[in-house]
């Protein structure tokens, strides 16, 4: 297993370097540059040219890339022009907010997806399964931002059960119980929106996995041993069907990044996704590049994590 992990890590490094180059080149290809967004009409042409020179924007791209990469490696993504602060500092709080949103969403995805998938797979083609399958079709057809908007409108504005924006009630002391509770309260609706849509893949995958495992020969062997149905399901069918789901855990990160971009925007939740859209609008490119790179790295690490989990969980891969 260690051999496998090391080899997999070695593949990851060039992936990340390639990603950084692509991200950088794309950013350069965007119309305008770091200065376009905030040019003060009163500034003179000479002044602008001077700033360009000072920021190295006149250098050839590979010099710029080298300088940028050297900074990135040290955790320096440059300055945000909008906020007039280091990108790293700006992103840090947002990353933490998104982390909590993702964590709660992930828990909800599995808390909803596993029981539904299990029931649906065990009682396939009965009424309960048809209801659950109907839900998954709806979930596939509904874009997450539409669902988020509707949820916000009903539970936020109409019923007033949940806050309609932000990540915490202003004026609370960080670390207090009220603060944490308020954070959770702000998280619930956006997380639930992500989870209710994001879990349908898990439900369908688990369902088909269970239906498939149910008719395997080794299930007959288990029954022939005299195992009661409860044991046949828990020890053989569910266990064998959930293991591949565990392996998808890493890929789930990619889904969460995609989901949070829209959801944070809709719920005005100060996370990475929210910052991302805002920075694109304002052409705050150093922030955009930093966020794209970060998400890309997370996605690559997610895939790596999935492969490692799969190798731990499935003995047939483990020995290779």
């Amino acid at each position: 297993m260690w051999k496998f992990t090391v080899r997999r890590l070695l593949i990851t490094t060039p992936q990340i370097i390639l990603l950084s180059a692509i991200v950088f080149i794309l950013a350069k290809m965007m119309p305008g540059d770091a200065l376009t967004g905030l040019i003060d009409p009163t500034l003179s042409q000479e002044r602008i040219a001077e700033m360009r020179e000072k920021l190295g924007l006149n250098n050839p791209w590979y010099i710029q890339y080298r300088d940028w990469l050297a900074g990135v490696v040290q955790g320096d993504f440059g300055q945000s022009f909008k906020y007039q602060m280091p990108v790293t500092e700006l992103i840090w709080q947002r990353v933490i907010n998104t982390f909590w949103l993702s964590l709660v969403s992930t828990i909800m995805i599995y808390a909803i997806g596993l029981p539904l998938g299990i029931v649906s797979g065990r009682y396939n083609d009965r009424l309960i399964d048809q209801l659950i399958t109907g839900y998954t079709y709806l979930g596939f057809a509904t874009p997450v931002f539409i669902f988020g908007l509707v949820a916000l409108w009903i539970f936020g504005f109409m019923l007033g059960w949940f806050p309609t924006g932000g990540s915490v009630e202003p004026g609370l002391e960080p670390g207090t119980f009220e603060y944490i509770l308020s954070k959770l309260h702000h998280l619930l609706l956006p997380s639930l929106s992500i989870a209710l849509i994001g879990t349908v893949g898990t439900v369908q995958y688990l369902r088909s996995e269970i239906i498939d495992t149910k008719q395997r020969d080794f299930i007959i062997t288990a029954r022939a041993k005299g195992a009661p149905e409860r044991r046949v399901y828990n020890r053989h069918i569910f266990r064998n069907s959930i293991l591949p789901i565990a392996a998808f855990f890493g890929y789930e990160i990619i889904n969460l990044i995609n989901g949070s971009i829209f959801i944070e925007q809709i719920f005005s939740y100060p996370g990475m996704g929210n910052l991302f859209i805002e920075s694109i609008m304002l052409r705050d490119y150093s922030v955009v590049t930093a966020l794209v790179l970060l998400s890309g790295i997370l996605a690559i690490l997610g895939a790596l994590l999935s492969d490692i989990i799969l190798s731990v969980v499935d003995p047939r891969i483990r020995i290779k």
Binding site: D217, F218, T221, A224, G226, H236, P315
Partner: peptide
């Protein structure tokens, strides 16, 4: 109570009759 105890069975295909995990 009988199966796997007083009454047991051997199957045709050993490649699929055991739980792979």
């Amino acid at each position: 109570k009988f199966r796997g105890n007083e009454l047991s069975m051997i199957f045709q295909d050993p490649l699929t009759a055991l739980n792979p995990l």
